[in-house]
């Protein structure tokens, strides 16, 4: 028999026999290549990443009028508004981590404020995560706005928490994000219904009950599930709101 056919490897000897070492070297190179190819094939399918952004670590200052209900918002005049464009934008306000900003903004309802926070935005929808300390400062009085009704509609989509969906987490929807969405909505982050048309256009609708109250706890069992919501469609400046009692939501 040939010498190399009876090679035997012992790990505590200084070197592996030449034939075995060659076979292992070839296998290791193959495994490295296969690993790199697997990484390439897997990562190129991570197509669930939206064009959304959370300016983590960047604190900016904003001025506007606080609207504490139904969910905390900052109403900001749009200096460039022309034609049919809304004259005001509304930035949803949330607290750091997985909590809503209701207790922070309640004393400033209807007042003009200067506030510090971090921008979160996606598809022309903007949110501000308030700075951890001294986020709001009153600088005057403000003018509110009345919602405009567009009648009854039925919309099909997914309930998500607005903070993660708008950019804090990416992706911030579907089953892999469900647990986080439940935590956020439970903690006071405004829930929104995400509706996609056949061409992939995404629209978000703030969910409130018929009395325009918050629905956070009531929607928890339906988060990240396909649902149909029938209710009154209302516009608040550049935000759409859907008024319907959560008991009437239908799981699809």
């Amino acid at each position: 028999m040939k010498q190399d056919q009876d090679e035997f490897y012992v790990g505590y000897q200084p070197k592996a026999p030449a034939g075995i070492a060659g076979a292992v070297r070839g296998t290791v190179v193959l495994l490295l290549l296969l690993g790199a190819v697997a990484a390439f094939l897997i990562v190129r399918e991570q197509k669930d990443i939206a064009a959304a952004l959370f300016e983590f670590g960047v604190v900016r200052e904003f001025e506007g009028v606080i609207a504490a209900k139904p969910y905390p918002m900052l109403r900001v005049a749009r200096p460039d508004a022309a034609g049919d464009a809304e004259a005001f934008s509304r930035y949803l306000l949330v607290a750091p981590f997985k909590f809503g900003a209701d207790p922070i903004v309640a004393p400033f309802d209807g007042k003009k404020v200067s506030l510090k926070g971090t921008l979160i935005y996606r598809d022309n929808k903007t949110m501000i995560e308030l700075a951890a300390e001294d986020a709001l400062r009153e600088i005057g009085g403000g003018v509110g706005d009345k919602p405009v009704s567009f009648g009854e509609v039925t919309l099909k989509g997914e309930i998500v928490d607005s903070k993660c969906f708008l950019g804090v987490m990416n992706p911030g929807e579907l089953k892999t994000h469900k647990a986080c969405a439940v935590r956020c909505i439970s903690g006071g982050i405004p829930p929104v219904l995400v509706v996609r048309d056949g061409e992939g256009t995404v629209k978000t609708f703030l969910l409130v009950d018929r009395n325009q109250g918050q629905v956070n706890q009531a929607v928890l069992p339906m988060v990240a599930e396909p649902v149909a919501v029938t209710g009154e469609l209302v516009r608040l400046d550049d935000w759409w709101m859907l008024k319907a009692d959560p008991e009437s939501y239908k799981l699809l």
Partner: peptide, 16 residues
Amino acid sequence: LYLAVFMVLGAVLFPS
């Protein structure tokens, strides 16, 4: 190698 391919390509292909 695996992590480098995954992280670098992921950051390039999906900037967000």
